[in-house]
Design a protein around this nucleic acid. Sequence first.
DNA 1: ATGACGGATCTAATCCGA
Length: 267
Amino acid sequence: MAFSIATWNINSVRLRASQVEDFLRAHQPEVLCLQEIKCTNYQFPEKPFRKLGYDHQAVHGQKGYHGVAILSKLPLSEQYSHDYCSMGDTRHLSVDIGIDGQSVTVHNFYVPAGGDIPDPIKNPKFDHKLRFIEEMRHLGAETNGKPAILLGDLNIAPLENDVWSHRQMLRVVSHTPVETDGLKSVMSEGGWDDLIRAKIPAGEKVYTWWSYRAKDWAASNRGRRLDHIWSAPALAKHLTDIDILRETRGWERASDHVPVIARFNIG
DNA sequence: ATGACGGATCTAATCCGA
């Protein structure tokens, strides 16, 4: 059975609902996880996605900022949100999905960006980010034989070739050693596989985000790999493809993040 | 300088993103 799941930081789902529709029509993932929907549950544009066959939707939003959502062609159950750091933020949403008779838990994350200064004493936002990833360590890739997928905007580029310049980014929030070590610990302690790097060798540059502030994002190409899809090894062994849709960054009024799709052939 | 844009908000200037 073919199964595909995508992640996309949409940076306002109301502003870019038509882009989401275009993406769903063209790529038809079974599941799309969105971050930074920037709206309340009531404001979420559910109808256009329903029309495209995404009848099953889980939305966890708030006014103006943050917010995560899961659109699915397959039924969803066990919808849950953990309030990381007890901040009342809408940064996590998990559901269970039946894939070929096997229940799989999907965790959709929007990890805090962490502000400008990479010092938890001087910068409370960086402290929040470090505490958030510390709290993610409890998540295992497999629970009582049930495999999981963890994806989303993790706002950390863990490897040297996940940024345009490792040397110049070492003191820049998203690529500081305390963050990259923290994320690697979440990955190893939880038993997660990095699906993007399962298909693209660590020696090759990969980005999923390009700043709005560059004059010409494509020409300067100073991106970062901030968006991730991880899974339990039991699922990772069925991974067939990773698609990173760089071209969407060139769309008119684009999000600064691009979609990432993981495709599996299960069973 | 990496680079100063782009979204939401009690529509104007402010907060936030990474």
